[in-house]
Measured scan of single mutants.
Amino acid sequence: KEFRPGDKVVLPPYGVGVVAGIAQRSVSGVSRAYYQVDFPGSRSKAYVPVEAPHSVGLRKAL
């Protein structure tokens, strides 16, 4: 896996977040693995496909 729990990442347009782990989510009846990204200071979460994280701009924070 490219990202691990605890990694600081950037996800446009949300900003800097932390990978909380990998979650299985069902979309249109198909279960897939997603990185769960939490954003400190907020209750917001984002789910990014493990198979294509760069397709939505997910990258490691510098």
Rank of each mutant, 00 (worst) to 15 (best):
residue 1 K to L: 15
residue 1 K to S: 13
residue 2 E to V: 12
residue 2 E to K: 11
residue 2 E to G: 11
residue 2 E to H: 10
residue 2 E to N: 10
residue 2 E to D: 10
residue 3 F to D: 00
residue 3 F to G: 01
residue 3 F to W: 11
residue 3 F to S: 00
residue 3 F to R: 00
residue 4 R to Q: 11
residue 4 R to T: 07
residue 4 R to Y: 09
residue 4 R to H: 11
residue 4 R to N: 12
residue 4 R to G: 06
residue 5 P to C: 13
residue 5 P to V: 15
residue 5 P to K: 14
residue 5 P to H: 06
residue 5 P to A: 13
residue 6 G to Y: 03
residue 6 G to A: 05
residue 6 G to F: 03
residue 6 G to V: 00
residue 6 G to C: 05
residue 6 G to S: 02
residue 6 G to R: 02
residue 7 D to K: 01
residue 7 D to T: 09
residue 7 D to W: 09
residue 7 D to S: 04
residue 7 D to G: 02
residue 7 D to M: 07
residue 8 K to M: 13
residue 8 K to V: 14
residue 8 K to W: 15
residue 8 K to G: 03
residue 9 V to I: 05
residue 9 V to F: 04
residue 9 V to W: 02
residue 9 V to N: 02
residue 9 V to R: 00
residue 10 V to I: 13
residue 10 V to C: 12
residue 10 V to L: 07
residue 10 V to D: 04
residue 10 V to E: 07
residue 11 L to M: 08
residue 11 L to F: 07
residue 11 L to N: 00
residue 11 L to V: 05
residue 11 L to W: 06
residue 11 L to Q: 06
residue 11 L to H: 03
residue 12 P to A: 08
residue 12 P to K: 06
residue 12 P to T: 04
residue 12 P to D: 06
residue 12 P to W: 14
residue 12 P to Y: 12
residue 12 P to E: 09
residue 13 P to Y: 10
residue 13 P to W: 10
residue 13 P to E: 05
residue 13 P to F: 10
residue 13 P to S: 06
residue 14 Y to Q: 03
residue 14 Y to C: 11
residue 14 Y to K: 03
residue 14 Y to S: 00
residue 14 Y to H: 07
residue 14 Y to F: 11
residue 15 G to W: 05
residue 15 G to R: 04
residue 15 G to S: 02
residue 15 G to P: 01
residue 15 G to T: 02
residue 16 V to T: 07
residue 16 V to Y: 15
residue 16 V to I: 12
residue 16 V to R: 09
residue 16 V to E: 10
residue 17 G to S: 01
residue 17 G to M: 02
residue 17 G to P: 02
residue 17 G to R: 01
residue 17 G to F: 03
residue 17 G to Y: 02
residue 17 G to A: 02
residue 18 V to W: 12
residue 18 V to Y: 13
residue 18 V to P: 01
residue 18 V to H: 05
residue 18 V to M: 06
residue 19 V to G: 00
residue 20 A to S: 12
residue 20 A to V: 14
residue 20 A to Y: 08
residue 20 A to Q: 09
residue 20 A to N: 07
residue 20 A to E: 07
residue 20 A to F: 10
residue 21 G to R: 13
residue 21 G to L: 10
residue 21 G to P: 00
residue 21 G to F: 06
residue 21 G to K: 10
residue 21 G to T: 06
residue 21 G to N: 07
residue 22 I to M: 05
residue 22 I to L: 06
residue 22 I to K: 03
residue 22 I to Q: 02
residue 22 I to E: 02
residue 23 A to W: 13
residue 23 A to E: 12
residue 23 A to S: 11
residue 23 A to G: 05
residue 23 A to V: 15
residue 23 A to H: 12
residue 23 A to Q: 12
residue 24 Q to V: 13
residue 24 Q to L: 14
residue 24 Q to M: 15
residue 24 Q to C: 15
residue 24 Q to W: 15
residue 25 R to K: 09
residue 25 R to W: 13
residue 25 R to I: 14
residue 25 R to A: 05
residue 25 R to P: 01
residue 25 R to E: 03
residue 26 S to P: 05
residue 26 S to C: 14
residue 26 S to T: 15
residue 26 S to N: 12
residue 26 S to K: 12
residue 26 S to G: 04
residue 26 S to F: 13
residue 26 S to A: 08
residue 26 S to H: 08
residue 27 V to P: 04
residue 27 V to R: 06
residue 27 V to C: 11
residue 28 S to P: 02
residue 28 S to W: 09
residue 28 S to N: 14
residue 29 G to R: 04
residue 29 G to N: 04
residue 30 V to R: 09
residue 30 V to D: 05
residue 30 V to W: 04
residue 30 V to E: 08
residue 30 V to G: 06
residue 30 V to S: 06
residue 31 S to I: 14
residue 31 S to E: 08
residue 31 S to N: 10
residue 31 S to D: 05
residue 31 S to G: 05
residue 31 S to L: 13
residue 31 S to F: 12
residue 31 S to V: 14
residue 32 R to V: 08
residue 32 R to G: 13
residue 32 R to N: 05
residue 32 R to C: 07
residue 32 R to F: 06
residue 32 R to I: 08
residue 32 R to H: 07
residue 32 R to P: 00
residue 32 R to T: 06
residue 32 R to D: 02
residue 34 Y to V: 03
residue 34 Y to A: 00
residue 34 Y to R: 00
residue 34 Y to H: 03
residue 35 Y to H: 01
residue 35 Y to W: 05
residue 35 Y to E: 04
residue 35 Y to M: 02
residue 35 Y to G: 00
residue 36 Q to C: 11
residue 36 Q to K: 12
residue 36 Q to P: 01
residue 37 V to I: 15
residue 38 D to I: 15
residue 38 D to V: 15
residue 38 D to E: 13
residue 38 D to M: 13
residue 38 D to A: 12
residue 39 F to C: 15
residue 39 F to T: 01
residue 39 F to N: 01
residue 39 F to L: 04
residue 40 P to N: 07
residue 40 P to E: 09
residue 40 P to G: 10
residue 40 P to A: 10
residue 40 P to F: 13
residue 41 G to C: 15
residue 41 G to R: 10
residue 42 S to I: 11
residue 42 S to R: 12
residue 42 S to C: 13
residue 42 S to D: 08
residue 42 S to Q: 10
residue 42 S to E: 07
residue 43 R to E: 11
residue 43 R to Y: 12
residue 43 R to F: 13
residue 43 R to Q: 12
residue 43 R to D: 12
residue 43 R to C: 14
residue 43 R to M: 14
residue 43 R to V: 11
residue 44 S to K: 14
residue 44 S to E: 12
residue 44 S to I: 14
residue 44 S to V: 14
residue 44 S to F: 15
residue 45 K to S: 15
residue 45 K to L: 09
residue 45 K to P: 14
residue 45 K to T: 14
residue 46 A to H: 10
residue 46 A to R: 11
residue 47 Y to T: 01
residue 47 Y to R: 01
residue 48 V to G: 00
residue 48 V to H: 15
residue 48 V to D: 02
residue 48 V to C: 06
residue 48 V to A: 06
residue 48 V to M: 03
residue 48 V to K: 00
residue 48 V to Q: 01
residue 49 P to E: 05
residue 49 P to R: 05
residue 49 P to G: 03
residue 50 V to D: 00
residue 50 V to I: 09
residue 50 V to L: 07
residue 51 E to I: 07
residue 51 E to G: 08
residue 51 E to A: 08
residue 51 E to H: 07
residue 51 E to R: 05
residue 52 A to Y: 09
residue 52 A to D: 15
residue 53 P to L: 06
residue 53 P to F: 08
residue 53 P to Y: 09
residue 53 P to M: 06
residue 54 H to Q: 10
residue 54 H to L: 08
residue 54 H to G: 10
residue 54 H to M: 08
residue 54 H to P: 04
residue 55 S to P: 05
residue 55 S to I: 11
residue 55 S to C: 14
residue 55 S to V: 10
residue 55 S to D: 09
residue 55 S to M: 10
residue 56 V to W: 11
residue 56 V to Q: 08
residue 56 V to H: 14
residue 56 V to T: 09
residue 57 G to I: 05
residue 57 G to M: 06
residue 58 L to Q: 03
residue 58 L to E: 10
residue 58 L to T: 03
residue 58 L to Y: 01
residue 59 R to E: 06
residue 59 R to D: 03
residue 59 R to N: 04
residue 59 R to C: 09
residue 60 K to M: 12
residue 60 K to T: 07
residue 60 K to Q: 08
residue 60 K to I: 09
residue 60 K to P: 13
residue 60 K to Y: 10
residue 61 A to F: 15
residue 61 A to G: 04
residue 62 L to F: 12
residue 62 L to K: 09
residue 62 L to W: 10
residue 62 L to R: 09
